[in-house]
Design a protein around this nucleic acid. Sequence first.
DNA 1: TGACATT
Length: 473
Amino acid sequence: MASVTAENGFSTADSSGRMNGLNSAIPMKDHDAIKLFIGQIPRNLDEKDLKPLFEEFGKIYELTVLKDRFTGMHKGCAFLTYCARESALKAQSALHEQKTLPGMNRPIQVKPADSEGRGEDRKLFVGMLGKQQSEEDVRRLFESFGQIEECTVLRGPDGASCAFVKFSSHAEAQAAINSLHGGQTMPGASSSLVVKFADTDKERTLRRMHQMAGQLGIFSPMTIQFGAYGAYTHAQILQQQQAALMAATQGSYLNPMAAIAAAQMQQMAAFNVNGLVAAPMTPSSGTSTPPGISATAVPSIAAPIGVNGFSALPPQSNGQPASEPIYTNGIHPYPAQSPTVADPLQQAYAGVQHYAAAYPAAYAPISQAFPQQPAIIPQQQREGPEGCNLFIYHLPQEFGDAELMQMFLPFGNVISAKVFVDRATNQSKCFGFVSFDNPSSAQAAIQAMNGFQIGMKRLKVQLKRPKDANRPY
DNA sequence: TGACATT
């Protein structure tokens, strides 16, 4: 009887969003209470299951598991507000990334919800970190500029690659930018540090996407999605953008491949923009972008991608391309993993901003790896060994060899990337070839990029047909 | 829809 009552109490709390159960009078919360985002929660845990876990740090004011509006499906994350700010801080430090709940393969996430930050310009994106940098290193780097409320380093198998640092004020963040952006090169990084405001504001992102879309005629904001991992419907995206954004920005882990791909797409969009438009996507640094994306752009493009650690790395994932000499980017196929809570669309958005933003800076230093002949690459199409050559269809019209190469660099050493062009019109035929130096890179690329949606189309990425198979005559 | 290293 008693337990039933308790259950009912929670159910009530559930629908009202409040955890002030039957006998507890706790309607008050601190004015500076922090709403926490809780990520990586097993879907079988409901409010009542979660409550005990969090109560230990203080009285809970509100605990809401995020659910799909239509299906009611548990989204694997929740919002939690303690009555006391202090409790939230305690919970965060005690739990965040500190334990992994049963059935999860990533540690629990406990961080201030993004709604708390108000999306103000106090959050920085930090690119060009070295491989070694830990969150602590990043904190140290930034701490002199103000109070760091949040610091997240996104890293992949190889180490750190970029980070978010949220200050308590815009001014602090700005100061950090002023002092740190472009000012030093982290050990193991190929370019100087990139420090810019993170675009947390969804609308700004959308605006930019719209801008780009208008200018390019592609990449409309709603069209970058992942087919290959498409567990997300458009409706879901729209309804739960908020939650998903949080999930994505709160350190949830995404499929690294998808994330990389997203960043790549963004990057390419940026490149295209460069050719056409002054620089809608280049925020802080005034670096002028090269006029075109012809063959001469290849080395430059290759550099940011292959050389630096973060180029292919969208901010909201832990995916990470490595940093090494140009065509040995050390990136290795991440095994395709099942997607987690975050929304690919969000990744894509975020990827755009950060990637594009970091791009100008990434531009400057060209590899030390090819001192004499900077970075130039495989200009003639070369086939790799059997099983290493991909046929890619449904490329955007705007894509040239460079873009194609960029898109596939994260998966391995690209020997060659060739978009077919109609000789008469000089227009892309929307298909091309990419060759890797080993089959597993090719497979990784297929895994990640086949089905990648651009605009209304999805990339088709397959092994190229062997020679003899396509010679009917 | 289309389609596999071209001029």
